[in-house]
């Protein structure tokens, strides 16, 4: 069977198509920049309220993404939310690291912030974080503010 011009065109087509897929994979999506291929370890944290936190939300420390939220469960014994974080093995944190749910920008997405403590022992796979700070719920905040205002008004009169 001889080579034909048709073969060349089909070859070009397939190469361009696969190249487009590669561009999408490497340049457009986060597969090239995340740690998903590297080694990870899992940490549990319990929160009273997680607000609008979602699975796959970033975990940041000093603004750098060090992991992602991999699971969110509800503990029906203690009535708290249990969030499982998957962190990159390259980043180690002390045992007394505090974890809080923060919001990027005024109305942006919610993410988890880690603040390293002073402990010399490092977190291991399966550990749980004790120092947690729940998400700020706007309604509760406003409710508290109004309640305090009303209480102030009552005492001055």
């Amino acid at each position: 069977m001889d080579r034909t011009v048709l073969d060349a065109w089909v070859g070009i087509f397939v190469v361009v198509g696969i190249a487009a897929l590669f561009i999408l994979a490497l340049k457009v999506s986060n597969s090239g920049t995340t740690f998903s291929t590297g080694e990870t370890y899992r940490i549990t944290a319990e929160f009273d309220n997680i607000g609008g936190l979602k699975v796959r939300a970033p975990v940041k420390s000093s603004g750098v993404v060090v992991g992602r939220v991999s699971e969110i469960q509800f503990d029906s014994k203690k009535f708290v939310a249990r969030v499982i974080l998957t962190l990159d093995k390259r980043y180690e944190f002390p045992k007394d690291t505090s974890v809080s749910i923060l919001t990027s920008g005024l109305l942006g997405e919610q993410y988890i912030g880690l603040e390293a403590g002073g402990d010399t022992a490092m977190l291991k796979d399966g550990d749980s974080l004790k120092l947690t700070q729940s998400a700020v719920v706007l309604e509760k905040l406003i409710g508290q503010f109004l309640y305090n205002k009303a209480a102030e008004g009552g005492t001055t009169k």
């Binding site: 087509f13 397939v14 361009v16 198509g17 487009a20 897929l21 561009i23 999408l24 457009v28």
Partner: peptide
């Protein structure tokens, strides 16, 4: 075989 390749080319050109 052609369709996914065409769709990928479309998306890449769109970006």
């Amino acid at each position: 075989i052609s369709m996914p390749l065409l769709a990928a080319i479309f998306s890449a050109m769109g970006v």
